[in-house]
Amino acid sequence: HNLTITQGKLFFHYNPKLCLSEIHKMEEVSGTKGRQERNDIALKTNGDQASCENELLKFSYIRTSFDKILLRWEPYWPPDFRDLLGFMLFYKEAPYQNVTEFDGQDACGSNSWTVVDIDPPLRSNDPKSQNHPGWLMRGLKPWTQYAIFVKTLVTFSDERRTYGAKSDIIYVQTDATNPSVPLDPISVSNSSSQIILKWKPPSDPNGNITHYLVFWERQAEDSELFELDYCLKGLKLPSRTWSPPFESEDSQKHNQSEYEDSAGECCSCPKTDSQILKELEESSFRKTFEDYLHNVVFVPRKTSSGTGAEDPRPSRKRRSLGDVGNVTVAVPTVAAFPNTSSTSVPTSPEEHRPFEKVVNKESLVISGLRHFTGYRIELQACNQDTPEERCSVAAYVSARTMPEAKADDIVGPVTHEIFENNVVHLMWQEPKEPNGLIVLYEVSYRRYGDEELHLCVSRKHFALERGCRLRGLSPGNYSVRIRATSLAGNGSWTEPTYFYVTDYLDVPSNIA
């Protein structure tokens, strides 16, 4: 807008934040220059609390790290170098490059900038070799853009010569660093050979998330399962459950009422301010606690030095998902009996873990797994792929695949051998790939016309006998059925096997 004052003059007093240069501009645009008398524009009460600059400061050096910015700028000295009290560095987070010096300023003089007072450097006698002032900004957020400017702080001049310097606002972004852990990993099994893994992005990506790394490792069953005799009275049979499938998407929606109208769909109840505040506090606490764990609990591995020492970490090797089922080394339970199943799973520490690289999504279907087997899954978020990966501390989750139908069934015939004193040795093959492992066998036998009897055969007993022995049988026709019990439950009964026990007292003698 054009402003013209045809008559009258300007009068400025007691404006401590208004620089004289701005008042002189007002004289020019209003056409009143030359009308004012000496005392109409006070030299001592206008701009006496402001830094009124008329020179431009330029930054000469900028260096960044993930949490620091090192700045240096060209030296500046007023005509009387004693008038320079120091520099004021202003900075704040700036997602967009549209910041002005006066953003967030209120009537009390406060604003949204963080201000650092910096002492002037030592003055050199040689004007050509003056030290460049600077400042190291610490405690910054990774991968965050900051708006920065600097200006001088000078003393009051009796001659009211307006001098000083100020830089333009520059924008500097800190470097990326390792992201925080992925949030809320959930693993479920939808079949006997697959596990579905879902997660949420890290709360602090500290860069642009480029991919996720998912490692999985087959877990050995508890050692007590191999040692305890679950045929003993009072000892509860062990059981394991597989990871249940995901709930429906509708039930997972946030901010939804727990109660549904019987007449149909209901609208979600909005969260109160107290609920939102509580969630923010919980989120802040979780982030602080995660940072504490990362800094205190997890110790970084030592990389190899120039002395030739090897990095103890196993090298990563990509495998196809079809090879995942046989990740671990199978060892027989008892070496003397080769027909026992290889369900003991000690994992070799030198073995390469299978892994998958996930790009542009937060889910993965891990296939080719062994049925009813526990897996430990390790999830890392990465925001750099080359020249070397920059990934987060791992988040861990466990899951067990679903049982395989008929995996616990005894394959092959049940054979028998009759000894003296009416002892019958029953023999059968253990299931080759049971659900988890076989903890015991149930032997059901009966003599024709009598009630059915049951015998429990422990895992250890089966390994020693290759089956079991029935003792003290009365003469007669017998039928026997056997079924295995694994961590997933009972298998199917075998087809009945028949044998006849004679009275050993009636056996004919070869003595003449």
Rank of each mutant, 00 (worst) to 15 (best):
G234A: 06
T340D: 14
Y445H: 10
S458P: 06
V345T: 06
N255D: 08
S363I: 09
E249H: 08
F298H: 14
C231I: 02
F215Q: 12
T497V: 08
A394S: 06
P332G: 08
Y396D: 01
V480W: 05
A463Q: 06
Q275S: 06
R471D: 04
P349L: 07
N360V: 11
I482W: 00
E465C: 07
P300R: 13
K278V: 09
V359N: 08
S341G: 08
V334I: 14
S248H: 02
R390F: 06
V439Q: 10
P332V: 05
V423K: 03
W216S: 03
L277Y: 03
Q380I: 15
P312M: 06
P475V: 09
P431R: 01
A335G: 07
S268L: 11
H294T: 02
V329D: 15
S479R: 13
H425V: 12
E388C: 14
F462D: 01
S486P: 00
R301G: 07
E417T: 11
C231N: 04
I410L: 11
H416F: 06
N422I: 03
T415R: 12
E442P: 01
S304M: 15
D450T: 08
R390P: 09
S239F: 07
H454Q: 08
E389A: 06
A381L: 01
V329P: 12
A263L: 11
V414M: 04
V457E: 02
E227P: 10
N339C: 08
Y504A: 08
D261G: 05
A407Q: 15
R466H: 12
V327Y: 05
S223Q: 10
S262T: 11
S251H: 15
C269A: 08
E452V: 06
H352T: 04
V324R: 13
H425N: 14
P434L: 01
L369Q: 02
L505V: 07
H454E: 13
V443H: 00
V297M: 07
R286S: 09
F355T: 09
Q256V: 06
E495K: 11
P205M: 12
E378A: 10
F499H: 01
E221Q: 12
P300F: 14
V457H: 03
V345I: 14
N421D: 05
E404M: 12
R481I: 05
V501Y: 08
Y396F: 14
V457P: 00
R353D: 15
N435K: 00
K357R: 08
L487R: 14
R319Y: 03
D323L: 07
N477Q: 03
S203N: 15
Q219N: 08
D450W: 10
L437V: 11
L470I: 11
E404G: 11
F419M: 01
K361D: 04
S392T: 01
T502W: 06
L440K: 06
I377N: 01
H254V: 06
S284Y: 01
S284A: 12
E442I: 07
P346V: 13
T288Q: 07
E224P: 13
H461M: 11
P205R: 11
Y292N: 10
R481T: 05
S363Y: 09
N490D: 04
D323M: 15
D204T: 03
V397G: 09
P238G: 13
P431A: 05
C468H: 09
K406P: 07
H425R: 10
E452K: 08
Y212R: 00
E378R: 06
V345P: 15
K406V: 12
P346T: 14
Y396P: 04
C267L: 04
S479V: 10
F337E: 09
N477K: 08
R400E: 09
L277N: 14
I377D: 00
A488Y: 15
G325K: 15
T272A: 07
C266V: 15
N208G: 11
F462G: 02
Q429Y: 13
P238E: 08
L505Q: 07
H352Q: 11
S243C: 05
I482S: 01
E282S: 08
K271A: 14
F462S: 04
P312G: 14
Q256R: 06
H371M: 01
Q256Y: 13
D222E: 09
A484T: 13
S251G: 12
G264H: 04
E452Q: 10
N477E: 04
I438T: 12
G472F: 08
K287L: 05
S315E: 12
S341R: 07
L437A: 11
I410S: 07
N435M: 00
T340P: 12
G491F: 02
R459V: 15
P387F: 11
T386M: 02
E404W: 12
T210V: 13
P413I: 00
R483Q: 06
C231T: 05
N490V: 04
Q275L: 07
S305H: 03
I209P: 11
S479L: 04
T497N: 09
W242G: 13
E442F: 11
G234R: 12
E260G: 03
L235D: 06
T340V: 06
V214R: 00
L228A: 13
Y396M: 14
T272D: 11
L464R: 13
V423G: 15
L237H: 03
P300N: 04
S392G: 01
S305K: 14
S479P: 00
L455A: 12
P244F: 08
G374Q: 12
S342K: 03
S398W: 04
N477D: 08
L277D: 05
R218S: 12
T340W: 14
L237D: 12
V439T: 10
S444M: 07
S398I: 09
A484V: 07
A381W: 01
R286A: 14
E310P: 05
P431I: 00
R459F: 08
V424I: 04
I438V: 13
K432C: 08
C267P: 07
S243M: 12
D385P: 05
R313Y: 09
R286W: 11
T241V: 15
M427K: 15
E290D: 10
R400F: 12
E217H: 13
L321R: 07
Q252W: 10
N360I: 11
L440V: 09
Q380P: 00
W242Q: 10
P300I: 06
H425S: 14
T415Q: 13
V334R: 12
D385V: 08
A263P: 08
V411I: 06
F298E: 08
F372G: 06
V423Y: 11
F419K: 05
S363D: 03
G412M: 14
A399W: 02
S283Q: 10
A220E: 15
S492H: 08
G467T: 04
L379W: 02
E282L: 10
E290N: 04
A463G: 13
L473D: 01
L440M: 05
K236S: 12
S248L: 04
L293R: 12
P338M: 11
T415S: 11
G234T: 08
R301L: 11
S479Y: 03
E260Y: 06
L228M: 09
E258S: 10
S444L: 05
T307Y: 07
Q256W: 10
P387Y: 03
K406Y: 06
K236T: 05
Y375F: 08
L237V: 06
T401E: 07
V439C: 10
A407V: 06
L235C: 07
E378L: 05
F355E: 10
R376E: 04
W216C: 09
K317A: 10
A263M: 12
E310R: 07
T210Y: 05
V423M: 07
D503Q: 15
E224Q: 13
V327D: 11
E420Q: 12
D409K: 10
P354H: 11
D291G: 14
I482R: 00
F499L: 09
D323E: 10
E404L: 03
S304R: 08
F372R: 05
L440T: 03
I276T: 11
F226I: 06
K460Y: 06
E433T: 08
N477T: 02
E247V: 13
N295S: 14
V345M: 12
V296N: 11
Q252H: 09
R390V: 06
W242F: 07
V439M: 05
R318W: 15
N326S: 14
W216P: 06
T494R: 02
D261L: 09
R318F: 14
D250I: 14
V299T: 07
C231R: 03
H425D: 04
G325M: 10
E217T: 13
E404R: 07
E420G: 05
P413G: 15
L277M: 15
Q219H: 13
Q275I: 11
L440S: 09
A405V: 09
P349D: 15
V439R: 10
S363R: 04
N339F: 11
S243G: 11
G476C: 00
A463N: 13
